[in-house]
């Protein structure tokens, strides 16, 4: 554990909680892509199945349980409790175009051809593109609320910090996981355009040009 990973994890946690609180407090999920949230729920579920097979640390276990719990709570709020406010018409990204190629890639390129390992690989690849329905929705409606941009910023920051974490681990532990690194770079790059807008507009709600 190093400082980049710890802050990265906390940033990830902050993003998830910001989104949950935003929906809960405003009693609305307008502007939020339910599809991205379903993808994140799938990401956490397929990645953290190792909760059942291996114990890393109390920290690790607690964070995994919290991430999974929050992901499903978010999906529940969007599709059940506040579904009247869900903007399905604008959430029109075709997720099968992500899930199917990512599934194929996970079967082809992985560390070990075993059930849990392929699911882990699938989750890593899927996470790198899971935000696309959300970004697509913002580009389609042309706007995002301030709080939604904070959510996206924390999520992007988490991934950027993980890149520093991997550089750290490579130098000090000789550790590197090529699959995680490549997917992490792809994921961070997807946020670059957003980061630029976030910083130049002071994080205020913005008009997003297509």
């Amino acid at each position: 554990m190093n400082i980049f990973r710890l802050i990265g994890d906390l940033s990830h946690l902050a993003a998830i909680i910001i989104l949950l609180l935003k929906i809960w407090k405003s009693r609305s999920c307008a502007g939020i892509s339910g599809k991205s949230q379903i993808l994140f729920a799938i990401v956490f579920t397929t990645r953290y199945l190792d909760l059942l097979t291996s114990f890393i640390s109390l920290y690790n276990t607690c964070m995994k349980v919290i991430y999974i719990g929050c992901a499903y709570a978010t999906v529940y709020l969007i599709y059940m409790k506040f579904r009247a406010t869900y903007d399905g018409n604008h959430d029109s990204f075709r997720v099968e175009f992500l899930v199917v190629p990512v599934g194929g890639l996970a079967v082809l390129i992985n560390h070990d051809f075993s059930f849990l390992e392929i699911l882990w690989t699938f989750s890593i690849y899927l996470e790198s593109v899971a935000i696309l329905p959300q970004l697509f929705m913002i580009s389609k409606t042309g706007e995002a609320e301030t709080i939604t941009t904070h959510y996206l910023f924390c999520l992007g920051l988490y991934r950027a910090l993980y890149l520093f974490n991997w550089i750290w681990r490579f130098y000090f532990e000789g550790f590197f996981d090529m699959i995680a690194i490549v997917a992490g770079v792809v994921q961070t790059v997807l946020y670059c355009d957003f980061f630029y807008l976030y910083v130049t507009k002071d994080g205020k709600g913005y008009r997003f040009s297509i």
Binding site: D50, I56, M63
Partner: peptide, 10 residues
């Protein structure tokens, strides 16, 4: 083999 590789990151 199920889950041979141990992943310690989140």
């Amino acid at each position: 083999v199920i889950g041979r590789t141990k992943h310690d990151e989140l």
